[in-house]
Design a protein around this nucleic acid. Structure first.
Length: 563
DNA sequence: GCCGTTTTCGGCCCGACTGTTTTCAGTCG
């Protein structure tokens, strides 16, 4: 997909226009278009080939022409001209916290500063403080922000950020003045990585609540503190923003700070049309607040059904709400079993019996034991003798279990040529086969796609495990044609996995692409211990972000339907 | 640069905090 490349060019054009001090709405339209392209679930080239570029919200005649130019020539004249005028180092300066276009332009015009290195030298020499509307404090802050930037704190993984946020919410509730606290932002929307954690609190004494927050032992730097908000950086580098509001505004603030920004803009525009105004304190008709205590109230006065946070990405959810076409999103409670997990037969930490007991505790009706096949030597993959032994153990166990079933399965490696790592004789004895790639990540897109399609067309395969190989924040997906893989999966009745573990693979975007091709899904944890069975919620969140309903997900079905 | 259930022109989401000022510009979310 070339969406990313076009998005990057638009982002840079917008950045430079902003530096040049161009009309705000002009550069915002480039930024907005870049964001839209990144979230788009369709290949931009296909949309172009169908002549439908201007059907994308935020893309008009001028941007459509530029997209066509980029797709045809690989370049964009406007972009090239702007880059000749403004060095790329200036764009890098925009990534420094506290620096925006105005200050960067000032430093450039008056001191010739066009990259981070020169800025650092200037700050150390003390020449920044002499500029108009600058001072010692501003200069010191810039130096601090550059040092932070040098440490380069990566975005946090959804799973680790969620656990941290839940810990912080617990801490906030320890304060007797706090009556309610929740996290908002991209974390609440379930994005696979988040840049910071937004926390919202309400209670009697706002000052006391903010003091309690700032007193947390992990706070390493206070970025801002005021009457209603505070921002800190924790040991480890994660930024946390707290906002304190009145009880009567809690829903409005939760809605506002959950975003996404573009979703909020969409509903605000809607409000204006209805003669209303939305801000973080409520929905207002003139001076009068007509909603704000809960999110549900806000949607109601806008004439919309409740839209879950996972869908608030300005991806057509507002229109779908109007048209009554929002998905009935799959929920954690719909999940009846986990079909991909490991035991100590291969690289899991717990015994099969312990995994079964833990699954029963979660209220599941079944699980599938899916240890690694022979080729996964590093993961202690089972050879033919051991898989036969395991099959016998599962059969014996099933005789003892009441109201619960263990499916005999395996996570079988897809070999380089697309064949499977177990012979048909073994595959025929198993109930449920997950086929996965664990090697040769660097094949060309054509080779990888052909490899996966060959595996999918094997009649014994039920699911393609973690289809793109991505591990969020650790490994990029391998090259492949996801649409072609999805078509093959739909044709062969093979489901695609949504892996709830650190991989989060498929991604929400790929889920939407695959669903359009008629694919079914399974949401699995790939658990290697009993604790990890609890990661299911993150796969469900990802599925919800991919607009999936219960009916799209096979492990919402009862045992009989899978048997 | 985009867009239209008041508009093909004239709007475009809204408020908090900081540092430098003495009323506000810049940045952030």
């Amino acid at each position: 997909m070339e969406n990313q490349r076009v998005a990057q060019i638009f982002q840079e054009i917008g950045d430079i226009l902003e530096l040049k001090g161009e009309n705000r709405f002009r550069y915002l339209s480039y930024h907005r278009a870049a964001q839209t392209l990144l979230n788009l679930s369709k290949d931009i080239r296909k949309i172009y080939d169908n002549g439908e570029l201007e059907g994308i919200p935020g893309i008009g005649k001028a941007l459509a022409e530029k997209i066509a130019e980029i797709l045809n020539t690989g370049k964009c004249g406007t972009h090239e001209r702007l880059l000749a005028e403004f060095d790329k180092g200036l764009l890098e300066l925009l990534t420094i916290r506290g620096l925006g276009p105005k200050k960067i332009k000032k430093f450039y015009d008056e001191l010739g500063i066009d990259n981070i290195g020169k800025l650092k030298t200037a700050a150390e020499k003390g020449v920044l403080a002499d500029l108009e509307r600058m001072g010692e404090k501003s200069q010191a802050d810039i130096l601090k922000a550059i040092q932070e930037h040098e440490k380069h704190v990566a975005r946090s993984h959804l799973i680790t950020a969620t656990f941290l946020a839940e810990f912080l919410i617990g801490y906030m509730k320890d304060c007797s003045k706090v009556s309610r606290a929740e996290y908002a932002g991209s974390l609440r929307r379930g994005r696979e990585t988040v840049g910071d954690i937004d926390i919202l609190a309400t209670g009697k004494d706002h000052n006391q609540i903010i003091r309690h927050f700032l007193a947390h032992q992990d706070v390493s730097l206070v970025l801002a503190q005021g009457e209603t908000k505070a921002s800190v950086i924790l040991e480890g580098g994660v930024q946390v923003d707290l906002r304190v509001v009145d009880e009567k505004s809690f829903g409005a603030a939760l809605y506002y700070f959950t975003g996404s920004k573009n979703h909020n803009i969409a509903t605000r525009k809607l409000a204006i049309k209805k003669g209303l105004k939305i801000n973080e304190y409520g929905v207002f008709k003139g001076e009068k607040s007509i909603a704000g205590k809960t999110e549900k109230e806000i949607f109601k006065v806008l004439g919309l059904p409740y839209i879950i946070p996972e869908l608030r990405e300005d991806q057509g959810e507002v229109q779908a709400g109007f048209d009554g076409k929002l998905p009935k999103s799959v929920e954690l409670a719909d999940i009846r079993g986990d079909l991909h997990l490991h035991t100590n037969w291969s690289d899991g930490r717990n015994t099969l019996e312990e995994m079964v007991a833990a699954a029963q505790k979660l209220g599941y009706e079944y699980l599938c034991v899916s240890d690694h096949s022979t080729s996964a030597r590093i993961a202690n993959g089972l050879d033919l003798g051991r898989i036969k032994d395991q099959i016998k153990q599962v059969e014996a166990l099933n005789k003892r279990l009441r109201g619960f079933k263990v499916f005999k399965g395996a996570e079988v490696d897809i070999l380089t040529d697309g064949s499977l790592d177990f012979p048909d004789e073994i595959l025929a004895q198993l109930d449920w086969i997950t086929a996965s790639v664990h090697s040769k990540f660097t094949l060309s897109s054509a080779e990888q796609t052909a490899r996966l399609i060959k595996a999918i067309s094997n009649p014994y395969v039920h699911v393609l495990g973690h289809p793109t190989g991505q591990i969020v924040n650790r490994r990029e997906p391998y090259e492949l044609d996801i649409a072609a893989v999805a078509r093959a999966a739909a044709k062969n009745n093979v489901a695609l996995e949504i892996n709830s573990n650190m991989r989060l693979d498929l991604s929400a975007t790929n889920i939407r692409i695959a669903k359009e091709h008629g694919v079914k899904f399974v949401i699995n944890t790939d658990a290697h211990s009993i604790d990890q069975l609890g990661l299911m919620r993150f796969g469900v969140t990802t599925a919800r972000r991919g607009w999936l309903e219960k009916g799209d997900v096979l492990n919402t079905l009862p045992i009989e339907a899978l048997d």
